[in-house]
Design a protein around this nucleic acid. Sequence first.
DNA 1: ACTTGCATGTAAGTCGTTACATGATTGT
DNA 2: ACAATCATGTAACGACTTACATGCAAGT
Lengths: 170, 170
Amino acid sequence: MQDKILLGFLMDGSKTGYEIKKTMEQSTEFFFTTSLGSIYPAFKKLEREGLVEMAESIEAGRLKKKYSITPEGKKVFLNWISLKTGIAKIRDEAILKVFFFNYLSPDERKNRIEEYIKELEGHIGELLALKSRLEKKNIDAFQMTTLDMGIEYFMFMNNWYSGFLDTLKK
Amino acid sequence: MQDKILLGFLMDGSKTGYEIKKTMEQSTEFFFTTSLGSIYPAFKKLEREGLVEMAESIEAGRLKKKYSITPEGKKVFLNWISLKTGIAKIRDEAILKVFFFNYLSPDERKNRIEEYIKELEGHIGELLALKSRLEKKNIDAFQMTTLDMGIEYFMFMNNWYSGFLDTLKK
DNA sequence: ACTTGCATGTAAGTCGTTACATGATTGT
DNA sequence: ACAATCATGTAACGACTTACATGCAAGT
């Protein structure tokens, strides 16, 4: 999946691995992140496959390896985005814990959920801050839409856990 | 995380790896699944760590390795469940594709979303069927709660993509 | 002088899946 | 007879993370 993201970020021009990492921290952060230790080898692999090309340069004394997408890479990316998408599993540790809540005392249950709700609220706050930061920039409408979706998603979660907390209190 | 699930399933009695896999297919399926090729080595590791114990037996001509949780294993499990849980990333391929929707034609966008909504509806149907199956059994209330949560989650997603489709049509 | 950020990369390790391999029992 | 299900396990592979390693530039 990372390789598709890398190709996607190259669709509007060449970038370095470091740049993409920074961009992701300010955009895909809430639904997807990668490490640099994963980006660099991924680019080398994409280069071997002929999906990207690399151009070295030295800017302000720093070595930069700008990657750009090849026509073949564009084909692969556009094919992927058109492919039917299956339903992803939630794979959320918080809900897994609720699954086993029988093994926790009623008091502890409430504490854990209250704690988690605070985490969610903090996260929603961060995303709202990110949104207002991005609104100042001229960002792609669909990328803004995914951010809105993320905010609504975490608000749904917040809502759900709040309702769950109410039933726990009864 | 798998190891915690295994411990969790052993909390109410000893089970074989195969049994746990079957149980998961009928309970945690929508938010978590594992493969047998992952369960067996995981149990061996847990055994080495002293968190589970194994008892071999032959039932109806079949070799069975029943694993049971040790007091130390219970400690580890209960500690994990009490630990503060961080916010998980969505890591959803569908939303990642929306992120890059700029590179798809308006018609294709609608088609992809309509297709995905159908997938979601099918999945919700499966979960509702699972729910009525589980209601006949005497299932743990919290495990039923997580299933309800799953259904609401996918209904939220269905809702969101339906709204998104409406804006795409304008 | 020192820390933070820019910029690249490798190595070790974790986690997990799929495919392969075996063999018995049960249902059709 | 044959297929499906029960039951176990290993090997190869893939995706990703963390820690390690290097070095320059810019700000304090």
